[in-house]
Structure formats: structure tokens, C-alpha cells
């Protein structure tokens, strides 16, 4: 019976596009940037997630890099995504949204209070690249939004 099962599951092979995408992922290796690690994600937090089917419209995600914290609120707006962010301590930075599927990134910047607001036309797997005026960069962990 184990052989039968193995046979049957064998037919559910990894789609070749999935393997190709995995191989292409190495191009996202961090070269010149510090990693801002995921600190919390309400979509990973057991208490805030009751069950599949719960439909939280706002999700909050935090990252940390060195002494800085990046707070992000992801809002759904009819298929589009609105990212409301806060850099702490407050800093004016260029903020680029990179997409794992390689589609075009979008840019914005934070104000003198460290706040930023970015609208995206669609969800996907993204990360933020935050660059200061001297060119030093921080990149967040990837998140699906």
C-alpha cells in the first residue's frame, strides 16, 4: 500500500515553473544591504488568526535592523494593497518595493517623521529596500501580501 501511495503522490510532481522560480531566487541574494529581519507578522501570530476563513483586512508586520524598527500595515483595497509604514527612529529615506517575481519595483520615500504610504496595484511577494542619502541600504525579509 505504501508503494501505491508513493505512486499516487508521485503524480503530484513539483511543477517545473515552481522549480524554475526557486532557481531564479538566488538573484535576490543580498549583496550590499543589511537584512531587516521579520520581528512579527500578524498573519503568523496564532492569537490573531482564529482559523482559515478569518478575513483580517489589516495586517501588521514589523522588521528590525540594527537599532531601527520598520512597522508596516498592509491594507486591502479591492485587490490593491496600501502599505502604511513607519520608520523608528524617524528618518527620511528612499523606500523601494521589490517584487520577487521580478516585475517592476516602485519607489517612495518617508517623510521627516519616518512615515510612508505606498499603493500597489496587486499583491505578491515583496520586500522593502530602504536607502539613506549616503547609499547605505537595508532590505527586509520577503513577505507575501
Amino acid at each position: 500500500m505504501i508503494d501505491q501511495l508513493r505512486d499516487a503522490f508521485g503524480a503530484d510532481a513539483v511543477p517545473s515553473r515552481v522549480t524554475e522560480a526557486a532557481k531564479a531566487a538566488l538573484t535576490w541574494r543580498r549583496i550590499d544591504a543589511e537584512l531587516a529581519e521579520l520581528l512579527s507578522d500578524s498573519a503568523l501570530d496564532a492569537e490573531s488568526a482564529l482559523a482559515r476563513g478569518a478575513s483580517p483586512l489589516v495586517r501588521s508586520v514589523s522588521f528590525s535592523a540594527g537599532g531601527a524598527i520598520i512597522d508596516l500595515e498592509v491594507q486591502l483595497d479591492d485587490g490593491r494593497r496600501v502599505l502604511l509604514g513607519q520608520l523608528s527612529p524617524a528618518m527620511q529615506r528612499t523606500i523601494e518595493i521589490q517584487r520577487a517575481d521580478g516585475s517592476e519595483s516602485s519607489s517612495s520615500s518617508s517623510d521627516e517623521l519616518g512615515r510612508f504610504r505606498i499603493k500597489l496595484d496587486a499583491g505578491g511577494t515583496i520586500r522593502l529596500r530602504i536607502v539613506d542619502e549616503a547609499g547605505a541600504a537595508v532590505e527586509t525579509a520577503w513577505i507575501p501580501i
Binding site: D12, D41, L44, G124
Partner: peptide
């Protein structure tokens, strides 16, 4: 778990075209 907990939120599906069909049932 993250994707399951994102639940009914519209999921990233830019790549949906790459599958003939979308559901686990259809694959099976």
C-alpha cells in the same frame, strides 16, 4: 501557516496562469 492564516484575503496570484487549474481538488 502564514498563507493559510491570511485566509480569504486575496492571495498573490500573479503566477496563477502557470497552472492549468488552481485547486488542489483539480490536481487530484
Amino acid at each position: 501557516l502564514r498563507i493559510i492564516r491570511m485566509g480569504k484575503r486575496e492571495m498573490p496570484s500573479d503566477e496563477e496562469w502557470m497552472f492549468e487549474s488552481d485547486s488542489g481538488e483539480a490536481i487530484e
